Simulated scan of single mutants.
Amino acid sequence: MSVLEVEQLYRNFSSGKKAFYPLNFQVKKREIIGILGTSGCGKSTLLRVLAGLDVEYNGVIKVDGQAHRGTHEKIGFVFQEPRLMPWLRVEENVAFGLEGKYKLTKANEFLKLVGLESYSKHYPSELSGGMAQRVAIARALVTSPEILLLDEPFSALDAFTKMNLQDLLLDVWEKCNSTMIIVTHDIDEALYLCNRLFILRGHPGELVEELKIEGKRPRQRGDLNLASLKSKIIKELHL
């Protein structure tokens, strides 16, 4: 069964410009979907629409078979930047929005999941960029969303930190049974993480290819099959 369905979805701005052409796709439970494309093809706009942060769209979005518009309790979001509140400690940032006397206990459970339980009393200014993004992932997961949307979550990080967090994300996916949709312009990242790729191209964006990636995870980053798929994607994007 599909956890997310998109039917004839498109977004036109008040200026008359289109973000992307009408899209139709379905996402199954526990899939990791990559939305891949060059800058300006509507990737981030699409993710904001799916998250309910942008409701000025046409078409239908269904979660577990039910049409909805706006934010949804089953959908979590991770931005490009951590967006932590500097006056709150790490555990308070993760617990922000939760209720009840055990909210800090729950926050610390998810900090442990991302390997930061020993930093719960720190402030965001005391964290590295990679650590701050781990906190952001914990904050998105603490409400146990069925679907986690990630908008280029590792784009601002160095290559080694990025690879470490990609592996962390796969660990989180394995433990939390979440469905994930990741916007990225990093082909290697998409091939390493995802079950399927939706490749957008042009201005406005058009879905030009849906690519299924076979093979169990964790994958070998230097795998020849992935290298072959990368060449195919580069051609599709006209790079």
Rank of each mutant, 00 (worst) to 15 (best):
I61G: 08
K62Q: 09
V63E: 03
V63Q: 02
V63C: 10
D64A: 13
D64L: 15
D64Y: 13
G65H: 06
G65I: 11
G65C: 07
G65N: 06
Q66G: 01
Q66N: 13
Q66C: 07
A67V: 14
A67P: 15
A67N: 15
H68W: 11
H68D: 04
H68V: 00
R69T: 14
R69K: 15
R69A: 02
R69S: 05
G70C: 11
G70N: 09
T71N: 02
T71A: 07
H72N: 14
H72F: 01
H72K: 01
H72D: 09
E73H: 02
E73C: 00
E73K: 09
K74V: 00
I75W: 08
I75P: 08
I75Q: 07
I75V: 11
G76W: 03
G76S: 04
G76N: 04
F77T: 06
F77H: 03
F77G: 02
V78A: 10
V78I: 14
V78N: 12
V78K: 14
F79S: 05
F79H: 05
F79K: 08
Q80I: 05
Q80P: 09
E81K: 11
E81C: 00
E81L: 03
P82S: 10
P82I: 08
R83F: 07
R83A: 14
L84N: 13
L84G: 11
L84V: 11
M85T: 14
P86Y: 09
P86E: 06
W87M: 05
W87F: 12
L88D: 02
R89D: 11
R89W: 12
R89L: 15
R89G: 14
R89N: 12
V90S: 08
V90L: 10
V90Y: 10
E91S: 12
E92I: 05
E92K: 08
N93G: 12
N93W: 13
N93Q: 13
V94Q: 14
V94E: 14
A95C: 02
A95I: 01
A95G: 01
A95K: 00
A95H: 01
F96G: 08
F96A: 09
F96Y: 15
G97S: 07
G97P: 07
L98D: 10
L98F: 12
L98P: 08
E99Y: 06
E99I: 01
E99P: 02
E99F: 04
E99G: 14
G100P: 07
G100I: 03
K101N: 12
K101R: 10
K101W: 06
K101Q: 09
Y102S: 13
Y102Q: 12
Y102D: 12
Y102R: 11
Y102P: 00
K103C: 08
L104Q: 01
L104M: 06
L104F: 10
L104R: 03
T105I: 14
T105Q: 15
T105A: 10
T105C: 01
K106H: 04
K106Q: 13
K106Y: 02
K106F: 00
A107Q: 08
A107P: 12
A107N: 08
A107D: 05
A107W: 07
N108P: 01
N108D: 10
N108E: 15
N108Q: 15
